[in-house]
């Protein structure tokens, strides 16, 4: 019991942030028209690419002779970059088409 309580207490700010973010996420997209479901999914996909920051932190923390961490960290950076770059570029390509049409 005590350990669970202290876990909560030590992380209370994060827990607040999480709860607020959950509601924010729901609120922010609740009025999306069906037309934009696909681009929105793709855009959200790019945003969770923020996980790449974790892979950079791993690399920064790794000892220069810890090849296990360096190799896996490098892999993680590549994977995260793929997620970010691919995600944003694909979303942009989808949305470019909406823009072209609006000029008319």
């Amino acid at each position: 019991m005590d350990s669970a309580l202290s876990l909560f207490y030590e992380n209370r700010e994060f827990i607040f942030l999480i709860i607020v973010s959950i509601f924010l996420g729901i609120e922010v997209i609740s009025n999306v028209p069906a037309v934009l479901h696909t681009p929105l999914m793709s855009g959200a996909n790019a945003i969770h690419g923020v996980v790449i920051i974790g892979s950079i932190i791993i690399m920064l923390e790794a000892e220069p002779d810890n090849y296990f961490a360096l190799i896996l960290g490098f892999l993680a950076v590549v994977l995260g970059t793929l997620n970010v770059v691919g995600g944003f570029v694909v979303t942009n390509r989808m949305l470019e088409m909406f823009k072209k049409k609006e000029k008319k």
């Binding site: 994060f14 942030l17 999480i18 996420g25 609740s30 959200a44």
Partner: peptide, 27 residues
């Protein structure tokens, strides 16, 4: 991604991850 944010006390990862988690669920 949000768990990664928890791990490093990183707010950008946390907000980005949770936002996508909840928006994605609604979607």
């Amino acid at each position: 991604a949000a768990f990664g944010g928890f791990l490093y006390g990183n707010q950008a990862m946390l907000t980005g991850g949770i936002l996508v988690g909840s928006a994605g669920t609604i979607l």
